[in-house]
Every structure is written in structure tokens, then in C-alpha cells.
């Protein structure tokens, strides 16, 4: 009983040790702006919402909050490690009018790929060494839970028979998006999935996979018949354009959903921080900016998982619908029989 109390007191102390500096760092933000001193924002580096800080530091006070927010969200060729300087990425001359120089988000994509390679080669080699009766532990266990979740609840539930072929793609895209989303929440990181080009590329992969699944399941004749929606030939002149546009709405919706969700969280956090800058008050910083931005930050952690899951889930769903053997006109019957 006594030990329990001791443990509880220690836990309480830990909570205070985290919370008190947080409150004061928030205080420092408000105070520093109202005094117009230049060195102030450096005192907030310890803030969990600290990734927003370098956006705030990079600009003089005359600039509008909106500009700072856009600067933080948009892609550029500077990686800033703010009190410690910044890295200017090399500019590559455009090839055929297309600018292919390396940007912040490209570097984040590389980082994510490298991390995935390391994590999964470690997990895989540990998995090979395990005997059949051994339970996985630590990282291996965590990864197994996620992989099993994707395999059973996403791939198998939505695609049905023959889901193994698509499992590699679904797992890759899930962990890739998840890590991209999570790295945006780390100080000095940026969200590569908050760039519409990245999400459009990912959605394009899903689009081609969906179309190839449909072609494989129905053949070219069935695929073209699907475009007519099974209607009378007189209606084809309306049906074919509609179905053709319908092909592209799904990947576009995937693109916008992931992009807007990842961008929106950052905008909300930055706006909350900027309320205290705009009103130039201590109280707003302590009462509103810091607690609310921490809350949104935690919500963003959840959204990072949710969006990775939804992208994977919808990809699996589209593949499953495309390769299902029901026609478009029997759509309702197909859904209810699943």
C-alpha cells in the first residue's frame, strides 16, 4: 500500500515536471512578443507543439500570421534547424520545364523510406530467428499487431479471395503514410503527406492497381461493358462519359482527403499559437494557445493513424469492388451479400 502511494507520488511529480515548464514556456511566448524582443521564441523549443516554433522564428514581426502559416506548410528548399542554423538544399536546373530540384518534402520522403527499410529489416530478421512457440515482444510485437490488422481487417475483409497479391501494396502504403504523418509531428520534421503532389502520386498507384484488378477480373470486354453501366446502347453517349469521369473521382477524393487532413491540423495548431502573438497577451498564451495546441497535437496523433488507415482501407475497398464479380447494376445486391 505504501509502495503504491510512493509510486503515485512519483508519477504525479513527473506530470508536474512536464507540465510546469510547458506553462512557463507558453508564458515566455506571450511575454516576449509583447516586449518585442528578438531572442524570445527560442525558449519554447521544449514545447510539444514546438515544431511550429521554427515557422514563427523565421519571420520578422511585420509579416502577417497567414504568411507564416503558409510558409510553414508549403514546400521549399530549406530545412531549418532553427536555433542551430539551416540546410539549403541544392537547386537542380529544370529538365524539360519541370523543376526536379530536391525539396524539404522530398528529403522527408527519403527519411521515411530509410526508416521503413531499417525497421522492417530488423523486425524481419528477428522474426526469422524466432521458434514457433516463442511469442514476439517489443517492436516485433507492435509491428505484428499492425500487420495482422491490415491483413485481416482491411485486406481480407474488403478484397476477399486473392487478397494476398495486394497485401504488399496495402502494407507498404499504410506504413509509408503513417510514418510520413507522424514525422510531421516531430520537431524539425515536416509532413510530406501534406503536399498534394505526394498524395496524388499515392492515389495514382491505387488507381492503376484498381484498374488492373478490374481488367484481370473481367477481361477487356467486361471492363468496357462496365463502362456502359449495362444500359441500352442509346444511353451510351451519356453513360460512357459519366462512368469515365467516375473512374477519376475516387483517386482525386483520396488525394484531397489525405492532403487536406494533414494540412488542416498544422493550420489549426499554428493559428492557435498565433492567437497569443496577435493579441500580445500572457493570459491568452497560458489559458488558450498552449493547452489547446497540445490538445490538437494529440488529436493529430490520432488523425495520423486514422488517415493512414482510411487510405489503406479505401484502396482495399476500391480494389475489392473492382475485382468483385457483381456488375455495377447489381451493386446493392453485392454490398448486402458481403
Amino acid at each position: 500500500m505504501k509502495r503504491l502511494i510512493v509510486i503515485r507520488t512519483r508519477a504525479l511529480f513527473k506530470v508536474f515536471a512536464i507540465l510546469v515548464p510547458l506553462l512557463f514556456s507558453g508564458y515566455a511566448v506571450g511575454g516576449a512578443t509583447s516586449q518585442h524582443s528578438a531572442n524570445a521564441p527560442q525558449s519554447v523549443v521544449g514545447d510539444p507543439a514546438g515544431e511550429v516554433v521554427h515557422g514563427a522564428e523565421a519571420v520578422p514581426e511585420e509579416e502577417k500570421a497567414g504568411d507564416v502559416i503558409m510558409h510553414h506548410i508549403l514546400d521549399n528548399n530549406v530545412i531549418s534547424f532553427d536555433p542551430f542554423g539551416e540546410i539549403h538544399l541544392p537547386k537542380i536546373p529544370p529538365i524539360g520545364g519541370v523543376d526536379i530540384s530536391i525539396t524539404k518534402h522530398v528529403v522527408m520522403l527519403w527519411v521515411v523510406s530509410a526508416m521503413l527499410l531499417v525497421i522492417f529489416s530488423v523486425v524481419g530478421s528477428k522474426y526469422k530467428k524466432m521458434t514457433a512457440r516463442q511469442a514476439p515482444s517489443g517492436l516485433v510485437n507492435a509491428m505484428e499487431a499492425l500487420v495482422e490488422f491490415i491483413r485481416v481487417d482491411v485486406a481480407k475483409a474488403n478484397i476477399g479471395t486473392g487478397y494476398e497479391k495486394y497485401l504488399t501494396y496495402l502494407l507498404t502504403v499504410f506504413f509509408f503514410i503513417l510514418l510520413c504523418n507522424l514525422l510531421g509531428l516531430v520537431p524539425y520534421g515536416s509532413t510530406a503527406t501534406g503536399n498534394v503532389n505526394v498524395t496524388l502520386t499515392l492515389a495514382t498507384f491505387t488507381f492503376f492497381l484498381t484498374q488492373s484488378a478490374a481488367l484481370k477480373a473481367h477481361g477487356i470486354k467486361g471492363y468496357l461493358a462496365h463502362l456502359t453501366g449495362g444500359t441500352h446502347p442509346a444511353l451510351w453517349i451519356i453513360m460512357i462519359p459519366i462512368e469515365f469521369i467516375g473512374l477519376f473521382t475516387k483517386p482525386v477524393a483520396l488525394t484531397i482527403r489525405l492532403f487536406a487532413n494533414m494540412t488542416a491540423g498544422h493550420i489549426v495548431i499554428l493559428s492557435l499559437i498565433f492567437i497569443s502573438f496577435i493579441l500580445k497577451s500572457y493570459i491568452v498564451a497560458v489559458v488558450m494557445s498552449v493547452p489547446f495546441s497540445i490538445f490538437i497535437y494529440l488529436l493529430e496523433l490520432f488523425v495520423a493513424f486514422l488517415q493512414a488507415f482510411i487510405f489503406t482501407m479505401l484502396s482495399a475497398l476500391f480494389i475489392g469492388l473492382a475485382s468483385a464479380h457483381e456488375g455495377h447494376d447489381e451493386h446493392e445486391a453485392g454490398v448486402s451479400s458481403h
Binding site: D153, I256, R257, A260, N261, L314
Partner: peptide, 26 residues
């Protein structure tokens, strides 16, 4: 699962609207 998919689709439509508003505002 069904709920999350439906909610995501609805949210997607709402986000289309929001993106247009952001573009308007900027």
C-alpha cells in the same frame, strides 16, 4: 468499419469545400 468509411467519405466532401474556401481566402 462501415461507420469509419462513411464518415471519411462525408469528411472528404466537407474538405473539398474547405479547400475551396482556403483558396478563396488566400
Amino acid at each position: 468499419t462501415t461507420m469509419i468509411i462513411a464518415a471519411a467519405l462525408i469528411e472528404g466532401v466537407a474538405l473539398f469545400g474547405e479547400v475551396i474556401c482556403v483558396l478563396l481566402a488566400l
